[in-house]
Amino acid sequence: MNDVDALSRAPVKESHEMETASLKISKTIIDEADWLFAIQLQDEKIQKIIADMRAEKKSENDEYVIEQDCLYRKYDGKMLWVVPKQLRFHILHECHDKAGHMSTDKTISRILNRFWFPRMRNFVKSYIKSSVGCVMYKIPGGRQEGPFPKSSKRNEHILVLVDAFTKFTIVAVKITATKHVLDALQEVTSYVGMPDRIVTDRGTAFTSKDCKSNNVKHILNAVRTPRTSGHARRTN
């Protein structure tokens, strides 16, 4: 036994007798239907619709359907899950923010692939209007005609004066009131001379009686005829 080590010869203590209980942890698997039911259960208006339908012993009516205890809305041949109020911001985050900050119509179209909730358009428009990403990075569509962000001199508008020879001069004005426009015109004519005639659009500053002075022939362009002031249009 010389080749047997000390550990193998160590006395083995008897194990204390103790009750052993096998702990079995059963996982509760919450599937999609259970989750949809649970989240709708917290919305009082949805539960009222479901209760009214069940009181009439109907699982569906002209607008809604109850399937697996969940409320769905009939829309364009599809069954759309009715979104509880507390979950609508999350739906908009998924269908608008994560989708690239699309327009109102495109966002609504994405939502209506699976979901529905009342006054959706108003809610989506309000959400997009207050969306930080849209406010910071999106440029409003169409031609911007002012007012623009105030400059260091508190100017908000652009008055474009185009001469047939010098081609153009741009002067900033604070507001488009007649007095300010006339002051800008007088400043320009003080160093380039008084023109024989001027062609303008039909803005109130130009149609004012104060503009009809200094023996200058004033021509107002026709409505929706931009070619009559082509130089100014190209400058814009």
Rank of each mutant, 00 (worst) to 15 (best):
N2L: 14
D3F: 09
V4R: 01
D5G: 08
D5C: 14
S8C: 12
R9T: 11
A10L: 10
P11G: 13
P11F: 13
V12E: 11
V12T: 09
K13Y: 11
E14M: 04
S15Y: 11
E17L: 10
E17R: 12
E19M: 08
T20P: 13
A21M: 15
L23Y: 13
I25Y: 10
I25H: 07
I25W: 14
S26Y: 13
T28I: 15
T28L: 15
E32N: 14
A33N: 11
A33V: 08
F37P: 01
A38F: 14
A38M: 12
Q40P: 10
Q40W: 01
D43C: 05
E44S: 11
E44Q: 12
E44N: 10
Q47T: 03
K48V: 04
I49H: 07
I49T: 09
I50Y: 02
M53D: 08
K58Y: 10
S59I: 10
E60N: 09
E60W: 03
D62L: 03
D62N: 10
E63I: 07
E63V: 09
V65A: 09
E67F: 03
Q68T: 06
C70L: 01
R73Q: 03
Y75C: 08
Y75W: 13
G77H: 06
M79N: 02
L80Q: 02
L80G: 03
W81P: 02
V83A: 01
P84L: 00
I91N: 00
H96T: 04
D97S: 09
D97Y: 03
D97K: 04
K98S: 02
K98V: 05
G100R: 02
H101A: 01
H101I: 01
T107N: 02
I108R: 03
R110C: 01
R110E: 09
F115C: 00
P118D: 01
R119E: 02
R121W: 03
S126F: 08
Y127F: 09
I128T: 04
C134F: 06
K138A: 10
G141T: 13
P147F: 10
F148Y: 07
K150T: 13
K150W: 08
K153C: 12
V160Q: 03
L161Y: 00
L161P: 03
V162Y: 00
F165C: 14
F165G: 11
F168T: 09
T169E: 06
A172F: 04
A172H: 04
I175S: 13
A177Y: 05
H180M: 14
D183N: 11
Q186E: 15
Q186T: 14
V188D: 00
Y191N: 07
M194R: 15
M194V: 15
P195S: 10
P195N: 05
R197C: 08
R197T: 07
I198Q: 06
I198L: 06
V199I: 15
D201W: 00
T204N: 13
K209Q: 14
C211N: 12
K217C: 03
H218Q: 11
I219M: 08
I219V: 15
A222F: 06
R224I: 07
R224Q: 10
P226V: 05
R227V: 12
R227C: 11
S229H: 01
G230H: 04
A232Q: 03
T235I: 07
